[in-house]
Design a protein around this nucleic acid. Structure first.
Lengths: 199, 199, 199, 199
DNA sequence: CATGAATGAGGGTTCATTCAT
DNA sequence: CATGAATGAACCCTCATTCAT
């Protein structure tokens, strides 16, 4: 799974462009290669098509983010800290509108891409599964710790947990957080919700 | 806000195409007009660009759906019935992958469209706001009814409510609902969650 | 087999370009459409690819030439006149380097084109066959007339006849007809050859 | 006229590719260098462009073939044997569709190559001329031997000779030699034709 | 109004050529 | 010398938009 420097440069360019708010569907190859500081033709030494570049860039990015959250979660020994770690991660990492969008889309499979590339996604050993794995581990630890009720089905537990995580994402994603709810208030509320649902 | 028959025909064509699973980004004008049974040039008598057609079609569709859920909610006098009515609506109306995707995207503003058309969206008096209004009315009724705690901030109440609605959408949206959780179990669990969080 | 005016315009453009000495392999779509006096995109309303345009243009041209020689031959009642008619036709019609080349290639199947289009050629009911038919009719008439020996195999008769026709083509095709042989001398020699071989 | 090993390797690669049926117009530099087993850049140490490589490769190949037929002809002391030697050479050497095609094209100058390289061809001291030389020597020997009539113009004699040689080439080149004419019958017929025309 | 034939700007992709190693 | 990674000019094709009928 070694990835060449040029590939990384292209991935980073795609991510940077997306973070800049460029629509993923209007991305031009020249935009990407210019941003990556390489020639247009060079991209085709490493990828067979524009779509391949973009898809793989997204997977690369999501993979990195997942790895980060995994490492993060390993540092904490109790559920409360882990929940707040996730919130913290969202605040710092998933805050950007664009990358959040991508991750979110992955989470519910609503990627809009040429059908021919949906196969590619299938081949990629689904990050959805990875997210699910993380949630599963999260919930199991909570049960083992005794803070989550054992009798609730794991699926339901994951659903409940994810619902509050998504709520926090949407909170950050909203254009105008006009009505006065501070980040801390929101975090407390969502944490309490999780405990009410699963505790 | 009178809308001509030709416009409706084009809107319906766009919606039908999306429901058929056609990627919104690869929609061609000729696809739309063919489906609508009118000439390609005719579309430009009513709209200034392809994007205008699609955007307005989506708004038209979401508007209809929102109107439907509004009428539906008016039929019920208590919160419990209203919550189940929403679940029922998701089961019947928002089940299709595509239309759900559109609505969902609208709900969190993650439309991916050429920036030039984001203004158009802004001009459209945000359906997000309408969704928010519905949630607000929902929550207020719950408080008036005495089943939701008055001391929770309305923003938080809406957040909690939406989180469980989204969970139900995702439940239907998942490709493989492999693990055995029946629809009824899920609905009960989500309803209980709402009551635990807000009751 | 009705052919639209636009198609004809494109065919004529291709032929004209070839007659001008443009290499068939370096022909650009824009060259063709410019010459035809139509927009680049228009070509794709009538053909699916550049190769399709060129291939069909060549077949169209060869078809016309064959039709012409056919009509021509029908006007004459004896073999001698027919042979000279063919020479005459070569002098006026097949003189151009390029069109000769095309015809010639067809005659021996040495078209160099993307393999994917060889099928197209196959579908076209071989003009090679048509050329063969003309030769066959030619020879049969000669036999009936009593100027060609009946005992020679038709294949051999056609071979002999074609060899002298080709010789005349090559005579015109040569860059420098340095050594003094007049057209009339050549025609007489070739005619005599045919009679010596087949008479 | 010393030719380096690398050049030969490239020439051989081009020839091999052509014999494999690859279209000369779609030949890529990388195809050639890969086949030759050398680096892509190396080709440009010896040639200034792709076309130069291919053109020179073709000349190299034709030169070799001509040399071979020359040696072959020197072995025979009478015209009849020489004619059959040529037929034999066509059967063994010029049988392949591709190399035949190249040679044939050379013979009538119908090379399709970017005009810029036609000059290159001119500079190459025309192999057409060499072929012509061979034909001239052939005819002169026939006259000296007394089997060809002295009063026929050398140009005409060469024309007649070449016409039957070409006929034999076309005979082998035809896809389907469906109609029953054996190689021997054809050779006899063509030999007789030559004698009837020139004897 | 309605149409669809015509258009050409735009962008993905290829591949001959270069040049730093 | 030899290499092959990098390059970008070139070109095919798509499709949103226009406009004559």
């Amino acid at each position: 799974m070694e990835v060449s420097a040029k590939k990384i440069a292209l991935f980073d360019a795609v991510i940077a462009l997306i973070e800049d708010g460029v629509d993923i569907n209007t991305l031009k190859v020249s935009d990407i290669t210019n941003r990556a500081g390489i020639g247009k033709g060079t991209a085709y030494e490493y990828f067979r098509s524009k779509e391949e570049i973009i898809i793989q860039a997204l997977f690369y990015d999501v993979g990195q983010r997942i790895e980060k959250i995994r490492r993060l979660l390993r540092q904490y020994t109790n559920t409360k800290d882990r929940i707040h770690a996730v919130f913290q991660w969202i605040e710092t990492d998933a805050r950007q509108k664009s990358s959040f969008t991508q991750l979110f889309r992955m989470a519910n499979g609503s990627f809009e891409f040429s059908n021919s590339l949906k196969e590619e996604m299938a081949r990629q050993e689904g990050y959805c599964k990875e997210i699910n794995d993380i949630l599963t581990a999260f919930v199991e630890a909570g049960v083992a710790e005794g803070v989550f009720r054992r009798e609730i089905s794991p699926v339901l537990q994951r659903t409940a947990l994810l619902s509050q995580i998504m709520s926090f994402m949407i909170y950050f994603h909203q254009e105008d957080i006009s009505e006065a709810v501070t980040v801390e208030e929101m975090k407390d509320f969502l944490y309490e919700n999780i405990m009410r649902m699963l505790g």
